[in-house]
Amino acid sequence: MPLAPARPQTFWSRHKRSLTPWLFLAPGLVMFLLYVLIPIVQSVWISFHDWDGLGEKVWIGIENYVELLDDDTFYVSLKNNVLWLLLYLLAIPGGLAVALFLNQTVFGIRLYKSLFFFPFVISQVVVGLMFTWFYAPDFGLFSALIEWLTGEQVAILADERFVTYGIIVAGLWPQTAYCMILYLTGLNNINPEQVEAARMDGAKGLKLLWHVILPQLAPASFIALVVTVIGSLRSFDLVSIMTAGGPYGSSQVLSYFMYEQALSEYGFRMGYGAAIAVVLFLIMMVFITVFIVRMLSQERNG
C-alpha cells in the first residue's frame, strides 16, 4: 500500500476486508505454488520433451508416451501397482481386527496399544532392511518358516514369482498399525447406548459388528481407505531398499520406475521419467477426486 501515498488509507480501508485473508495466506500459498502447483505443470510440459537434465530440451510431442506403451517394464509396473493397491487394502480389516483385539481395559493396555503402533513410527528404510534380512535365504527367520511350511527353500526377494508379495507384506506391517490406531480412536467414540440397545435386541458378535459398529466407524474407515490407497500407490521406499525393482525389473512399480529412468546411471531421461510420473499422477488423481468430492459433500452438510 505505501506505493500510492496520496490515498493509501482509503484503498486499504476500502479493501481491508477482502485483502486480509490473502495477507494471511500469502506466505504459505507462495511456497505451495512454487514447490507443488507449478512443478506439476512443468512436469507435464517436460514429459513432451527429450531432456537429459542439463542441455536443451527437445520437443518430441507424445513420443515419450508412445515409447511407454511399448515398454514391458511399464506393464510390469502397472500390474504390480494394481497388486499393491489390492493387497494393501488388507491393512484395513487387519487394522480393525487388531483394534478390536486391543479394545479392552486391562492393566497395561495403553502400553500395548502404543507398542503395537511402533512399526508406523519407524522409517520405511529400517522396515525394508529388517524384512530383507528376515527373508534372507539360509538363515532368515521368515525364509526358515517358509521352508518349514513348504519343505522348499525360497529366496523370496530373488524370485520373480514372490518378490512383489514379499515387499507388500513388509509394507502391510506399518500400514496395519496405522489403520489400527484410526480404528481404536473410532471405537473410543462409539455411542454406547446404541450398542447396549442392540445387545438388548439380541444382536451380538459379527452381526453386531456389521450392523451397528461398522456404520459408526464409517469416518475411521474412510480415512483408513484414503491413507491406504494413497500409501499403496506411493510405494517407493521399500522397493528401493529391498530390491531396487529387481530381479530383472519384476518388482518395479511406477514410482520407482520413474525415478530409475529419470536419474538412470546410463544417462538422465527426465522427459521419459516425467511421462511416467504424469501417468502415475493421473491414476492417483482419479482416487484423489473421489476422496475430495466426498470430503466436499461432508463439508457442505456439516
Binding site: 512454487l34 514447490y35 507449478i38 512443478p39 506439476i40 512436469s43 506411493r234 516425467a274 492417483m284
Partner: peptide
C-alpha cells in the same frame, strides 16, 4: 476459500514423482 482449502488437501495426496524433476532442477 473452499477451492484453496481443497487445493491444499489434494496437494497433500499427489505422488512425489510428479514434482521430482522440476523441484530437483529448481
Amino acid at each position: 476459500n473452499l477451492l484453496l482449502f481443497f487445493m491444499f488437501v489434494a496437494g497433500n495426496f499427489i505422488p512425489f514423482q510428479i514434482l521430482m524433476v522440476p523441484v530437483r532442477d529448481m
